[in-house]
C-alpha cells in the first residue's frame, strides 16, 4: 500500500516537473541553434551585446527601484495605520489593493493618458520625466496587491499596537516609531514585496509601451517580433531574473536576523 502511494506521488511529481521544465528546455535548446548545424550561445551574445538591451534593462531597473520606494512609502504607513487605528477599514483597503488584478493595465493606462495628458491640469505626459513618473506610479499600482499583502502579512507577525504604545510612552513620535520599530520588524515582508514588484516591472509591456517609455518589456516584444532565436534567449534571461528575485526572497528570509522575524 505504502509502496503504491509512493509510486503515484512520484508519478504526479514527475508529470508536474515535466510540464514545467520541458517547455523551458525546449526554449533553451532552440535559443542555442542560432549557428547553423551546432549549438552556441550566439543568441545570448547578440542579446547582451545589443546596446538597446543594456539601455532598456537599466531603464527598467531604475524604474523598478523608484516603484519599490514609492510602494514602500505608500504601503507601509497605510497598512500600519489600518492595523493600528482603522481595522474596520481593512476589507475596503484589501478590496482596493486587489483592483489592479481585476482592471487590465491597458484600462489603467488609458485612464492615465486621458487624466494626465499634456492638456490636463496635471500634465505628466508633457515631459519625458513626467511620463517616467507616471510610469512609476502606474507600476506602483500594479504591484499594490503584492506589496500590500506582503507588508500586511509581516505586520500580522508583530503586535503592532503594543509595540507602538511601548515606543510612544518612551517618548517616540510617529516617524521614529515607523522608522525604528515597525519597518525593521517587517523588513523581510517589505523585501518580499519589493522583489515581487521588481519582477513585475522588469517584464511589463502594456504601460511602458502605451506611455512610450524605453523599458525592457517593449524591447522584449520588439526583439520577439523581428528576430528568431533572440526572443528565446531573452525569455530565459527574463525567467532567470524573475526566479533570481524569488530565490533572493527565500535566501534573505533565511539569513535575516531571527529577531526581526520572531515576535515575542
Amino acid at each position: 500500500m505504502k509502496q503504491g502511494s509512493r509510486f503515484w506521488a512520484w508519478l504526479v511529481f514527475g508529470v508536474g516537473t515535466t510540464y514545467f521544465v520541458l517547455p523551458l528546455l525546449a526554449t533553451f535548446e532552440f535559443s542555442l541553434r542560432k549557428r547553423r548545424g551546432e549549438y552556441s550561445f550566439d543568441a545570448y551574445r547578440s542579446v547582451f551585446g545589443d546596446p538597446n538591451f543594456q539601455a532598456t534593462f537599466t531603464y527598467s531597473v531604475v524604474v523598478a527601484i523608484f516603484t519599490i520606494l514609492l510602494g514602500v512609502l505608500l504601503v507601509v504607513p497605510t497598512a500600519y495605520w489600518i492595523r493600528l487605528r482603522l481595522p474596520h477599514l481593512r476589507p475596503v483597503v484589501e478590496f482596493i489593493t486587489l483592483l489592479p488584478l481585476v482592471i487590465p493595465a491597458i484600462v489603467i493606462v488609458f485612464g492615465y493618458i486621458r487624466m494626465f495628458g499634456s492638456n490636463s491640469a496635471l500634465p505628466f505626459l508633457a515631459t519625458a520625466r513626467g511620463a517616467d513618473a507616471l510610469l512609476v506610479i502606474g507600476y506602483a499600482v500594479l504591484a499594490l496587491p503584492y506589496m500590500y499583502r506582503a507588508v500586511d502579512t509581516g505586520l500580522r507577525t508583530i503586535d503592532v499596537r503594543t509595540l507602538t504604545e511601548a515606543a510612544q510612552i518612551l517618548g517616540a513620535g510617529w516617524t521614529t516609531i515607523i522608522a525604528r520599530i515597525i519597518l525593521p520588524n517587517v523588513l523581510i515582508a517589505v523585501l518580499s514585496g519589493a522583489f515581487l514588484s521588481f519582477a513585475i516591472v522588469i517584464g511589463e509591456f502594456t504601460m511602458a509601451s502605451l506611455l512610450n517609455r524605453p523599458a525592457f518589456g517593449p524591447y522584449l516584444q520588439n526583439i520577439g517580433a523581428n528576430t528568431a532565436y533572440e526572443p528565446s534567449a531573452l525569455a530565459l534571461i527574463s525567467f532567470a531574473i524573475t526566479w533570481g528575485c524569488m530565490s533572493l526572497i527565500q535566501i534573505l528570509s533565511r539569513f535575516a536576523p531571527r529577531s526581526a522575524n520572531r515576535p515575542n
Binding site: I158, D159, T162, L163, E165, A166, A167, Q168, I169, L170, G171, A172, G173, R180, I181, P184, N185, P257, S259, A260, R262, P263, N264
Partner: peptide, 29 residues
Amino acid sequence: KPNQRNVGMVFQAYALFPNLTVAQNIGFG
C-alpha cells in the same frame, strides 16, 4: 499625548522591540 507625559509603562505582553538588543531596548527612551 503619551510621548509628552514622562510616564513609564510595562505591558502584559512585554512589548520589547524584537529588532533591538536588550541594551538598545533599555536605551530606546
